[in-house]
Design a protein around this nucleic acid. Structure first.
Length: 418
RNA sequence: CGGGGCGUAGUAUACCGGUAGUACGUCUGUUUUGGGAACAGAUAGACCGAGUUCGAUUCUCGGCGCCCCGACCA
């Protein structure tokens, strides 16, 4: 991507109405645009990050047998009355709207109900189980207080997976598989997530698990063992700072954290009222046992920014950076630019994702500052000086000093993204 | 939803009961080019409504919006 063609621009000042690091940096660098409280649009750089995260999640969901669908956002009131989740007193997250005829509709905040109905058409025998279905979709939640940039929004992209089983045991077995898949996802995004026992919440499973990433901006508080990493959410925990771990000899520490994912053993909570059943081998009719599993993508992206940034800007992990390399050309138009153009072309042809700062009449300092702010993993500088010294200067975003390598080395440094 | 703060060019800010100044950005020109360049010129602004007042961006009230703390939160 040529930076002269990119329609976004970095700002010198962070917006005054944002306090959270993720919102300040992502807006300053031109990744997102704020529409209103808790609602953000994704611009080219931001969308690339979101898509990278989406692809990582998709790969891991497919690896545990997930089948991707896309369900409707508009929801039928009658369906949700069956599970007693329509009334505002029960679920205050709904955004509701109306048909011209007056019929009430909801904007989906989760999808257990409609998917359970869909599955009624396709599950009737033990031979049809288990099944795993997921989607990426914008969820709408009427949060009383949106906050902290992308961390708690009212409209956000979510991956929601639902599993359907013959038995509690089979569901719990898959629950563990999902847990492993989630760890892979968070690790691939560079995050160190802590598996945390939590309350059932509105989903009213007896317990659930959350994946928590320690960060000061987090709105959750967890008690976590410094040895085995056993953790409980404050909302259900009797533990306190300094206690001995119930599982090992470690000490319990109190941490602020961001919930980046959660998994729910639902049992028959939804299959019962909606009537999703199957016939066993012996001809007996039984309720399908379910689980559900969610990850909010913008929140995950924001968490990465909260954890990986410094005073100069974002420091993207390679796996989800919008581009792999930021190529900067310095100096006056002429031979150096021609060389840089060629290097950019060659990298592109190799399938490397490059952002090329081909802007003229921009000082070196400004290009460096923008590169630091945008935070791509590698910065490559092409200038009269670097060419004299034998090639280009390459520097990782995490390093202070770069080094000169020749152009062939550069071409072989990075593997193309598939 | 309770409490607090805030709303001035695209962005960040200043002053003021007498219609607004600065920086960055943007545009034009000249000079620059390895850490947010220099000079000259130009561009662009008081959230909305009502009230007080000779006069309101400033004071009062209402609305709308944003942020923070708390409550709440698959």
């Amino acid at each position: 991507m040529l930076q002269t063609k990119l329609f976004t621009r970095t700002k010198k000042e962070a917006p005054s109405d944002e306090v959270s690091k993720n919102a300040k940096l992502l807006i300053k660098a031109g990744f997102i645009h704020k529409e209103m409280a808790g609602v953000y649009s994704f611009l080219p750089l931001g969308l690339r990050v979101l898509k990278k995260i989406e692809n990582i999640i998709r790969e891991e969901m497919n690896a545990i047998g997930g089948q991707e669908v896309s369900m409707s956002v508009l929801q039928d009131k009658n369906l949700w009355e069956k599970t007693d989740r329509w009334e505002d007193q029960k679920v205050d997250a709904w955004f509701k709207t109306k048909l011209k005829s007056g019929t009430e509709l909801g904007l989906g905040f989760t999808h257990e109900e409609p998917l359970t109905v869909i599955m009624k058409s396709f599950i009737s025998s033990y031979r049809d189980l288990p099944k795993y279905v997921y989607q990426f979709q914008n969820k709408f939640r009427n949060e009383t207080r949106a906050k902290s940039g992308l961390l708690r929004g009212r409209e956000f992209l979510m991956k929601d997976l639902y599993s359907f089983h013959e038995s509690e045991d089979d569901m719990l077995n898959y629950y563990d598989k999902t847990k492993d898949a989630y760890f892979k996802i968070f690790n691939r995004c560079g995050l160190d997530a802590i598996y945390t026992k939590a309350a059932g919440g509105a989903f009213t499973a007896s317990y659930t698990h959350e994946f928590q990433v320690v960060a000061p901006v987090g709105e959750d508080t967890i008690f976590v063992c410094d040895q085995c990493r056993y953790a409980e959410n404050k909302e259900i925990s009797n533990l306190k700072e300094g206690d001995s771990c119930p599982l090992c000899k470690g000490k319990i520490k109190k941490e602020k954290s961001i919930e980046v994912g959660n998994i729910f053993p639902l049992g028959t909570k939804y299959s019962e009222p909606i009537g999703l059943t199957y016939k066993t081998e012996g001809g007996e009719e039984r309720r399908v046992v379910m689980g559900s599993y969610g990850i909010g993508l913008p929140r995950l992206m924001a968490t990465v920014v909260e954890v990986f940034s410094d005073e100069r800007g974002i420091v993207w992990p390679e796996s989800i950076a919008p581009f792999s390399i930021h190529v900067l050309v310095l100096g006056e138009d002429g031979e150096v630019f021609k060389k840089a153009d060629k290097i950019y072309e060659d990298l592109q042809n190799k399938g490397i994702e490059v952002l090329y700062d081909d802007r003229h009449d921009i000082s070196a300092g400004e290009k460096f500052a923008d590169a630091d702010l945008i935070g791509l993993p590698y910065r490559v500088v092409i200038s009269e000086r670097s060419l004299k010294e034998g090639g280009v200067e390459i520097k990782k975003r995490t390093e202070e000093k770069g080094k000169i390598i020749n152009v062939d080395e550069l071409m072989n440094l990075l593997v193309p993204r598939t």
